[in-house]
Protein backbone atom coordinates (compact mmCIF):
# COMPACT_ATOMS: atom_id res chain seq x y z
CA UNK A 1 0.00 0.00 0.00
CA UNK A 2 2.93 2.25 0.82
CA UNK A 3 4.13 2.05 -2.76
CA UNK A 4 0.81 3.27 -4.05
CA UNK A 5 0.85 6.28 -1.75
CA UNK A 6 4.42 7.04 -2.72
CA UNK A 7 3.55 6.83 -6.38
CA UNK A 8 0.51 9.02 -5.92
CA UNK A 9 2.65 11.66 -4.28
CA UNK A 10 5.17 11.48 -7.09
CA UNK A 11 2.39 11.79 -9.64
CA UNK A 12 0.97 14.87 -7.92
CA UNK A 13 4.37 16.52 -7.80
CA UNK A 14 4.75 15.84 -11.50
CA UNK A 15 1.38 17.28 -12.35
CA UNK A 16 2.01 20.33 -10.20
CA UNK A 17 5.37 20.93 -11.86
CA UNK A 18 3.74 20.60 -15.25
CA UNK A 19 1.01 23.10 -14.41
CA UNK A 20 3.48 25.58 -12.96
CA UNK A 21 5.88 25.15 -15.81
CA UNK A 22 3.36 25.27 -18.63
CA UNK A 23 2.91 29.06 -18.86
CA UNK A 24 6.66 29.46 -18.54
CA UNK A 25 7.33 27.00 -21.30
CA UNK A 26 4.76 28.57 -23.58
CA UNK A 27 6.02 31.77 -25.11
CA UNK A 28 3.98 34.63 -23.79
CA UNK A 29 5.27 37.74 -25.51
CA UNK A 30 4.46 38.44 -29.14
CA UNK A 31 2.61 35.21 -29.59
CA UNK A 32 -0.82 34.37 -30.85
CA UNK A 33 -2.89 31.24 -30.66
CA UNK A 34 -4.97 29.12 -32.95
CA UNK A 35 -8.60 29.30 -31.95
CA UNK A 36 -10.07 26.92 -34.41
CA UNK A 37 -8.63 25.58 -37.61
CA UNK A 38 -9.65 28.77 -39.41
CA UNK A 39 -8.99 31.37 -36.74
CA UNK A 40 -5.98 32.98 -35.10
CA UNK A 41 -6.22 35.12 -32.00
CA UNK A 42 -3.65 37.81 -31.31
CA UNK A 43 -3.47 40.21 -28.40
CA UNK A 44 -2.03 43.71 -28.69
CA UNK A 45 -1.91 44.57 -25.01
CA UNK A 46 -3.34 48.04 -25.70
CA UNK A 47 -6.64 49.07 -27.28
CA UNK A 48 -6.27 49.52 -31.03
CA UNK A 49 -8.42 51.46 -33.47
CA UNK A 50 -11.33 49.60 -34.92
CA UNK A 51 -11.03 51.19 -38.35
CA UNK A 52 -7.39 50.07 -38.56
CA UNK A 53 -8.09 46.58 -37.31
CA UNK A 54 -11.01 45.99 -39.64
CA UNK A 55 -8.81 46.54 -42.67
CA UNK A 56 -7.57 43.09 -43.59
CA UNK A 57 -4.75 44.60 -45.66
CA UNK A 58 -3.01 45.60 -42.46
CA UNK A 59 -2.33 41.99 -41.64
CA UNK A 60 -0.11 39.67 -43.53
CA UNK A 61 -0.06 36.07 -42.48
CA UNK A 62 2.24 33.32 -43.70
CA UNK A 63 3.65 29.97 -42.71
CA UNK A 64 7.16 30.39 -41.36
CA UNK A 65 9.05 28.55 -44.14
CA UNK A 66 6.97 30.33 -46.84
CA UNK A 67 7.26 34.06 -46.14
CA UNK A 68 6.55 34.89 -49.77
CA UNK A 69 3.20 33.13 -49.90
CA UNK A 70 0.54 34.92 -47.89
CA UNK A 71 -2.56 33.37 -46.43
CA UNK A 72 -5.58 35.51 -47.27
CA UNK A 73 -7.31 37.01 -44.24
CA UNK A 74 -11.06 37.05 -44.70
CA UNK A 75 -12.14 39.22 -41.81
CA UNK A 76 -10.95 40.56 -38.49
CA UNK A 77 -12.99 40.80 -35.31
CA UNK A 78 -12.07 42.88 -32.30
CA UNK A 79 -13.28 42.11 -28.81
CA UNK A 80 -15.21 44.73 -26.83
CA UNK A 81 -12.04 46.07 -25.17
CA UNK A 82 -10.36 46.33 -28.58
CA UNK A 83 -7.30 44.54 -27.20
CA UNK A 84 -7.51 41.15 -28.86
CA UNK A 85 -8.27 40.53 -32.49
CA UNK A 86 -9.44 37.33 -34.11
CA UNK A 87 -8.32 36.85 -37.69
CA UNK A 88 -10.59 34.63 -39.75
CA UNK A 89 -9.39 32.74 -42.79
CA UNK A 90 -11.19 31.17 -45.69
CA UNK A 91 -8.99 28.09 -45.81
CA UNK A 92 -8.13 25.91 -42.87
CA UNK A 93 -4.74 26.47 -41.36
CA UNK A 94 -2.16 23.80 -40.82
CA UNK A 95 -2.26 23.60 -37.06
CA UNK A 96 0.97 21.68 -36.77
CA UNK A 97 3.13 24.30 -38.39
CA UNK A 98 4.13 27.76 -37.22
CA UNK A 99 2.50 30.88 -38.63
CA UNK A 100 3.71 34.46 -38.52
CA UNK A 101 1.24 37.35 -38.35
CA UNK A 102 2.61 40.75 -39.29
CA UNK A 103 0.47 43.68 -38.22
CA UNK A 104 1.48 46.77 -40.19
CA UNK A 105 1.47 50.22 -38.56
CA UNK A 106 -0.55 49.30 -35.52
CA UNK A 107 -2.76 52.26 -34.80
CA UNK A 108 -3.93 53.04 -31.28
CA UNK A 109 -6.13 56.07 -30.50
CA UNK A 110 -5.10 57.58 -33.81
CA UNK A 111 -1.38 57.16 -33.15
CA UNK A 112 0.68 54.88 -35.33
CA UNK A 113 2.87 52.62 -33.24
CA UNK A 114 4.81 50.78 -35.91
CA UNK A 115 4.61 47.18 -37.04
CA UNK A 116 4.44 44.14 -34.87
CA UNK A 117 5.01 40.45 -35.42
CA UNK A 118 3.17 37.58 -33.80
CA UNK A 119 4.28 33.97 -33.86
CA UNK A 120 1.49 31.45 -33.77
CA UNK A 121 1.95 27.80 -33.08
CA UNK A 122 0.44 25.07 -31.04
CA UNK A 123 1.12 25.67 -27.36
CA UNK A 124 3.88 23.74 -25.70
CA UNK A 125 1.46 22.45 -23.09
CA UNK A 126 -0.82 21.08 -25.76
CA UNK A 127 2.06 19.41 -27.53
CA UNK A 128 3.28 17.84 -24.30
CA UNK A 129 -0.17 16.71 -23.27
CA UNK A 130 -0.74 15.24 -26.72
CA UNK A 131 2.57 13.42 -26.46
CA UNK A 132 1.69 12.03 -23.04
CA UNK A 133 -1.67 10.78 -24.23
CA UNK A 134 -0.15 9.29 -27.36
CA UNK A 135 2.53 7.38 -25.50
CA UNK A 136 0.04 6.23 -22.86
CA UNK A 137 -3.02 5.19 -24.81
CA UNK A 138 -3.03 5.83 -28.54
CA UNK A 139 0.33 4.25 -29.18
CA UNK A 140 0.47 2.20 -26.02
CA UNK A 141 3.86 0.55 -26.06
CA UNK A 142 2.52 -2.90 -25.29
CA UNK A 143 -0.64 -2.99 -27.37
CA UNK A 144 0.41 -1.13 -30.48
CA UNK A 145 4.20 -1.00 -30.43
CA UNK A 146 4.67 -4.54 -29.14
CA UNK A 147 7.44 -3.58 -26.76
CA UNK A 148 8.16 -4.92 -23.29
CA UNK A 149 6.21 -8.08 -23.95
CA UNK A 150 8.56 -10.40 -22.09
CA UNK A 151 8.10 -8.61 -18.79
CA UNK A 152 4.47 -7.97 -19.63
CA UNK A 153 3.73 -11.67 -19.87
CA UNK A 154 6.13 -12.66 -17.15
CA UNK A 155 5.00 -10.37 -14.37
CA UNK A 156 1.31 -9.90 -15.07
CA UNK A 157 0.11 -12.99 -13.26
CA UNK A 158 -0.78 -11.22 -10.03
CA UNK A 159 -2.26 -7.78 -9.76
CA UNK A 160 -0.11 -6.75 -6.83
CA UNK A 161 3.17 -7.59 -8.57
CA UNK A 162 1.91 -5.98 -11.75
CA UNK A 163 1.21 -2.71 -9.95
CA UNK A 164 4.55 -2.80 -8.14
CA UNK A 165 6.39 -3.43 -11.36
CA UNK A 166 4.44 -0.74 -13.17
CA UNK A 167 5.27 1.92 -10.59
CA UNK A 168 8.94 1.01 -10.29
CA UNK A 169 9.20 0.89 -14.02
CA UNK A 170 7.61 4.31 -14.52
CA UNK A 171 9.98 5.94 -12.06
CA UNK A 172 13.08 4.36 -13.57
CA UNK A 173 11.78 5.09 -17.06
CA UNK A 174 11.33 8.82 -16.50
CA UNK A 175 14.70 9.29 -14.88
CA UNK A 176 16.63 7.23 -17.39
CA UNK A 177 14.89 9.01 -20.27
CA UNK A 178 16.10 12.33 -18.92
CA UNK A 179 19.65 11.11 -18.29
CA UNK A 180 19.87 9.54 -21.73
CA UNK A 181 18.57 12.72 -23.29
CA UNK A 182 21.22 14.79 -21.57
CA UNK A 183 23.96 12.36 -22.56
CA UNK A 184 22.78 12.25 -26.14
CA UNK A 185 22.42 15.99 -26.55
CA UNK A 186 25.45 17.21 -24.68
CA UNK A 187 27.92 14.41 -25.30
CA UNK A 188 27.11 12.20 -28.25
CA UNK A 189 25.68 14.77 -30.62
CA UNK A 190 28.08 17.48 -29.60
CA UNK A 191 31.04 15.21 -30.35
CA UNK A 192 29.48 13.61 -33.45
CA UNK A 193 29.52 10.20 -31.83
CA UNK A 194 25.97 9.22 -32.79
CA UNK A 195 27.05 5.72 -33.65
CA UNK A 196 27.84 4.97 -30.02
CA UNK A 197 24.15 5.52 -29.19
CA UNK A 198 23.20 1.93 -28.53
CA UNK A 199 26.16 1.09 -26.35
CA UNK A 200 25.87 4.31 -24.34
CA UNK A 201 22.11 4.03 -23.76
CA UNK A 202 22.24 0.44 -22.61
CA UNK A 203 25.15 1.31 -20.38
CA UNK A 204 23.29 4.27 -18.92
CA UNK A 205 20.26 2.17 -18.15
CA UNK A 206 22.32 -0.59 -16.57
CA UNK A 207 24.36 1.78 -14.44
CA UNK A 208 21.29 3.72 -13.45
CA UNK A 209 19.37 0.63 -12.39
CA UNK A 210 22.39 -0.55 -10.44
CA UNK A 211 22.64 2.82 -8.72
CA UNK A 212 18.97 2.87 -7.77
CA UNK A 213 19.36 -0.64 -6.47
CA UNK A 214 22.32 0.29 -4.26
CA UNK A 215 20.85 3.55 -3.00
CA UNK A 216 17.47 2.04 -2.26
CA UNK A 217 19.06 -0.84 -0.41
CA UNK A 218 20.80 1.60 1.95
CA UNK A 219 18.25 4.38 2.23
CA UNK A 220 14.92 2.64 2.27
CA UNK A 221 15.18 -1.09 2.89
CA UNK A 222 11.41 -1.42 3.07
CA UNK A 223 10.88 -0.01 -0.39
CA UNK A 224 13.81 -2.04 -1.63
CA UNK A 225 12.20 -5.21 -0.37
CA UNK A 226 9.08 -4.31 -2.33
CA UNK A 227 10.66 -3.10 -5.54
CA UNK A 228 14.10 -4.68 -5.63
CA UNK A 229 12.89 -7.76 -7.46
CA UNK A 230 11.68 -5.76 -10.40
CA UNK A 231 14.75 -3.59 -10.68
CA UNK A 232 16.80 -6.44 -12.10
CA UNK A 233 14.09 -7.25 -14.63
CA UNK A 234 13.88 -3.69 -15.84
CA UNK A 235 17.28 -3.75 -17.55
CA UNK A 236 16.08 -6.41 -19.97
CA UNK A 237 12.87 -4.57 -20.86
CA UNK A 238 12.91 -3.27 -24.39
CA UNK A 239 10.83 -0.19 -23.57
CA UNK A 240 13.55 1.17 -21.36
CA UNK A 241 15.93 1.21 -24.31
CA UNK A 242 13.33 2.02 -26.96
CA UNK A 243 12.31 5.29 -25.31
CA UNK A 244 15.79 6.91 -25.37
CA UNK A 245 16.31 5.61 -28.91
CA UNK A 246 13.00 7.09 -30.07
CA UNK A 247 13.72 10.33 -28.22
CA UNK A 248 17.02 10.60 -30.05
CA UNK A 249 15.45 9.65 -33.35
CA UNK A 250 12.71 12.25 -33.11
CA UNK A 251 14.97 14.99 -31.73
CA UNK A 252 12.84 15.55 -28.67
CA UNK A 253 13.78 18.28 -26.23
CA UNK A 254 14.21 17.84 -22.49
CA UNK A 255 10.55 18.25 -21.57
CA UNK A 256 9.37 16.15 -24.47
CA UNK A 257 11.76 13.35 -23.53
CA UNK A 258 10.55 13.45 -19.96
CA UNK A 259 6.89 13.37 -20.92
CA UNK A 260 7.47 10.64 -23.49
CA UNK A 261 9.19 8.54 -20.84
CA UNK A 262 6.39 9.21 -18.38
CA UNK A 263 3.75 8.30 -20.95
CA UNK A 264 5.56 5.11 -21.90
CA UNK A 265 5.93 4.10 -18.26
CA UNK A 266 2.33 4.84 -17.31
CA UNK A 267 1.09 3.16 -20.47
CA UNK A 268 3.08 0.07 -19.59
CA UNK A 269 1.74 0.16 -16.03
CA UNK A 270 -1.84 0.44 -17.31
CA UNK A 271 -1.33 -2.47 -19.65
CA UNK A 272 0.17 -4.59 -16.86
CA UNK A 273 -2.64 -3.74 -14.49
CA UNK A 274 -5.39 -4.56 -17.00
CA UNK A 275 -3.70 -7.76 -18.05
CA UNK A 276 -3.21 -8.86 -14.45
CA UNK A 277 -6.84 -8.27 -13.54
CA UNK A 278 -7.96 -10.27 -16.55
CA UNK A 279 -5.49 -13.07 -15.88
CA UNK A 280 -6.69 -13.45 -12.32
CA UNK A 281 -10.15 -14.04 -13.70
CA UNK A 282 -8.83 -16.38 -16.39
CA UNK A 283 -7.16 -18.65 -13.88
CA UNK A 284 -10.57 -19.85 -12.82
CA UNK A 285 -11.76 -20.38 -16.38
CA UNK A 286 -11.75 -23.65 -18.22
CA UNK A 287 -9.22 -22.67 -20.87
CA UNK A 288 -8.45 -25.49 -23.35
CA UNK A 289 -5.33 -27.33 -22.18
CA UNK A 290 -3.17 -26.51 -25.20
CA UNK A 291 -3.94 -22.82 -24.73
CA UNK A 292 -3.14 -22.68 -21.02
CA UNK A 293 -0.43 -20.23 -20.04
CA UNK A 294 1.20 -18.10 -22.69
CA UNK A 295 -0.97 -18.89 -25.74
CA UNK A 296 -4.14 -17.65 -24.08
CA UNK A 297 -2.25 -14.67 -22.69
CA UNK A 298 -1.32 -13.78 -26.25
CA UNK A 299 -4.91 -14.11 -27.43
CA UNK A 300 -6.11 -11.90 -24.58
CA UNK A 301 -3.47 -9.32 -25.43
CA UNK A 302 -4.73 -9.42 -29.00
CA UNK A 303 -8.22 -8.64 -27.76
CA UNK A 304 -6.85 -5.77 -25.67
CA UNK A 305 -5.12 -4.46 -28.77
CA UNK A 306 -8.44 -4.68 -30.61
CA UNK A 307 -10.17 -2.61 -27.92
CA UNK A 308 -7.34 -0.08 -27.81
CA UNK A 309 -7.84 0.51 -31.53
CA UNK A 310 -10.65 2.77 -30.35
CA UNK A 311 -8.04 5.34 -29.35
CA UNK A 312 -6.42 5.40 -32.76
CA UNK A 313 -6.45 8.79 -34.41
CA UNK A 314 -7.36 10.51 -31.16
CA UNK A 315 -6.18 14.12 -30.93
CA UNK A 316 -7.48 16.25 -28.13
CA UNK A 317 -6.23 19.57 -29.46
Amino acid sequence: MNICRFAMKAAWVFLLLLVIASPVIAETAGSGAFKKDKEIEISFGIPVDESWAKNTNNFSVFEKPDPDIKVAVESVELDSRRVTAVLKFKESLNLSSEYVVEAKDVSSEGKVLGSREFFVKKGQFQILFGLLLAAMLIENFVFTKYLGLCIFFGVSQKKETAVGMGITFTLVMVLSAIISWALYTYVLRALHLDFLKIIVFIGTVAIFVQAVDTILRKVNPYLFKKLGVYLVLITTNCIILAVPLLNADRNYGAFESLIFGLGAGVGFAIAMFLMASVREKLELARVPATFKGLPIAFVVTGLFALAFLGFSGLSIF
Binding site: P288, T290, F291, P295, F298, G302, A305, L306
Partner: peptide, 24 residues
Protein backbone atom coordinates in the same frame (compact mmCIF):
# COMPACT_ATOMS: atom_id res chain seq x y z
CA UNK B 1 -6.39 -7.33 -38.94
CA UNK B 2 -3.58 -9.84 -39.39
CA UNK B 3 -1.00 -7.15 -40.02
CA UNK B 4 -2.26 -5.06 -37.12
CA UNK B 5 -0.92 -5.70 -33.60
CA UNK B 6 -4.04 -7.62 -32.61
CA UNK B 7 -3.57 -10.11 -35.45
CA UNK B 8 0.09 -10.60 -34.51
CA UNK B 9 -0.86 -11.55 -30.97
CA UNK B 10 -3.55 -13.93 -32.19
CA UNK B 11 -1.22 -15.67 -34.64
CA UNK B 12 1.54 -16.21 -32.07
CA UNK B 13 -0.99 -17.48 -29.54
CA UNK B 14 -2.36 -19.97 -32.04
CA UNK B 15 1.06 -21.09 -33.29
CA UNK B 16 2.19 -21.68 -29.72
CA UNK B 17 -0.94 -23.67 -29.01
CA UNK B 18 -0.30 -25.71 -32.13
CA UNK B 19 3.22 -26.49 -30.96
CA UNK B 20 1.79 -27.57 -27.62
CA UNK B 21 -0.76 -29.74 -29.37
CA UNK B 22 1.85 -31.40 -31.57
CA UNK B 23 3.98 -32.12 -28.55
CA UNK B 24 0.95 -33.54 -26.79
Amino acid sequence: VMILPAGGFFVIGFVMATFNWIEY
